[in-house]
Design a protein around this nucleic acid. Structure first.
Length: 425
RNA sequence: GGAGAGGUGGCAGAGCGGCUGAAUGCACUGGUCUUGAAAACCAGCAAGGGUUAAUAGCCCUUCGUGGGUUCAAAUCCCACCCUCUCCGCCA
């Protein structure tokens, strides 16, 4: 949610900022509502104050055995108006909420203009895509030849966009999780957390996943249970600080979690239907930081670096991209995408997304910390995949493939693979 | 799933429908004392919102959540949610 003060004081600037994100704001309409809100709220509160004062007087007068009829009548004379003003105010507030609720976060000033992912700006490339002296296969062909990936069986068990992994490849999936968690906890100073994979609506709203646009991308349990499968660990992990006032000393809070993620992927039937790129269920190791506002942009660089360290450790070529305004997510002020090289597609594909949400999530979450002045201030929240495990796995398959269809195991994973050097049929 | 108890400030824990936004204790902050620390003593200490140039004042809201009764609700009524204990069931 955008700072209501800002909406009041400088709506033009907000409208300008949101234009970059492709969101239009009816400035005049909102300001008219705001004017009404103001007068109604002042009136409503004045009447309440009057009522409170008279009520106290009634109490005092009664205690002294006095007559309270006149006072009661006075209160009754404006009681209707007081209630009505309250009802009108609630209606206006609701109307305003419907506008602000769908307002995405404002992009940071450093975010490039642009409409779609085609306008994202490449910042750097790491590593050199390997030249193969044979015809490369994609992970689907490699995995099926190795009898390590089984999409057909997964479709039988569940449906499309699921996979069954077997043998050494399944083990490598686990190895990746271990490697990522260990690196982030041992070298990058994150605390490992284990969290629920089902969350309630409040949590989804807190991190901004429950907007009208995003709701249909979630898997829900029985309506009476009110649970949703998490689309990302960001939801349960960031919600740890919901409704909390943190100590300044506790910041930055650095947490890492491995969770499965569940997405319906409705509306993208034609996209990435082949293979493991886009699945209903996938694993992710997620980095989350809760920080002081003044630190958040430094931390975004740092956190992105932590995700990059995994790619570098695995020696996977990648590039770093800054998302343009039009491609930014609903809650993000700035996002770096890390895209790994996939020989099977001859393209860079997203494997991590690292975002600074500034105070946008924190405002919804009521996540604050206490300043030295004793006042509370909203924290800034950030997160990033470090990394998406399934995509990392397929990136390894495609980048480490051999002419005979076997897959060499990256050296950093060998300790987790029981000394195995490569996966072969 | 069955039975019972309970949800109040950072925590613990009081609270006949009216002077209770909330006693008391702990924690915390400032001060006195002390060479320093501890102890003791004194003082302060909820959050959110509105108004405002203001982080000054003033006002409103909030005692699990949502409704209701009343001039007035932490206190009364209704519904829901959650927690704890015992039993059952299990990884």
């Amino acid at each position: 949610m955008i700072d209501p003060q800002l909406l009041r004081n400088d709506l033009e600037a907000v409208a300008e900022g949101l234009k970059v994100k492709g969101h239009t704001v009816d400035v005049a309409a909102y300001q008219a509502l705001e004017a009404k809100r103001k007068s109604l709220q002042v009136e409503s509160e004045e009447l309440q104050a009057k009522r409170n004062a008279r009520s106290k007087e009634i109490g005092r007068t009664k205690a002294q055995g006095g007559d309270v009829d006149a006072l009661m009548q006075e209160v009754n004379s404006f009681a209707d108006r007081m209630k009505q003003a309250q009802v009108e105010l609630d209606a206006i507030k609701q109307e305003m909420l419907e506008i602000t609720d769908v307002m995405p976060n404002m992009p940071h000033s450093s975010v490039p203009q642009g409409k779609s992912e085609d306008d994202n700006v490449e910042l750097m490339k790491w590593g050199v895509p390997k030249q193969f002296n044979f015809e490369v296969k994609d992970h689907v062909d490699l995995g099926e030849a190795l009898e390590a990936l089984d999409f057909e069986t997964a479709t039988k068990i569940a449906g499309p966009r699921f996979v069954v992994m077997k043998g050494a490849l399944a083990r490598m999936n686990r190895a990746l999780i271990q490697y990522m968690l260990n690196t982030h906890t041992d070298q990058h100073g994150y605390q490992e957390v284990y969290v629920p994979y089902l969350v309630n609506e409040d949590s989804l709203k807190g991190t901004g996943q429950f907007s009208k646009f995003a709701e249909h991308d979630l898997f829900a349990t029985q309506a009476e249970d009110g649970y949703y499968l998490i689309p990302t660990a960001e939801v349960p992990v960031t919600n740890i600080v919901r409704d909390e006032i943190l100590k300044a000393d506790d910041l930055p809070l650095k947490m890492v979690a491995h969770t499965p993620c569940f997405r319906r992927e409705a509306g993208s039937y034609g996209r990435d239907t082949r293979g493991m790129i886009r699945q209903h269920q996938f694993e992710k190791v997620e980095l989350v930081q809760i920080v002081k506002p003044e630190d958040s942009y430094n931390v975004l660089e740092e956190l992105t670096g932590h995700a990059e360290a995994i790619l570098q450790g695995l020696e996977l070529p990648y590039r770093k991209v800054v998302l343009c305004g039009g491609d930014l997510g609903f809650s993000a002020a700035k996002t770096y995408d890390l895209e790994v090289w996939l020989p099977g597609q001859n393209a860079y594909r997203e494997i991590s997304s690292c975002s600074n949400f500034e105070g946008f999530q924190a405002r919804r979450l009521k996540a604050r910390y206490r300043l030295e002045t004793k006042k509370t201030e909203l924290v800034h929240t950030l997160n990033g995949s470090g990394l998406a495990v399934g995509r990392t796995l397929l990136a390894i398959m495609e980048n480490y493939q051999q002419a005979d269809g076997s897959i060499v195991i990256p050296s950093v994973l060998k300790p987790y693979m029981g000394g195995l050097d490569k996966i072969s049929a």
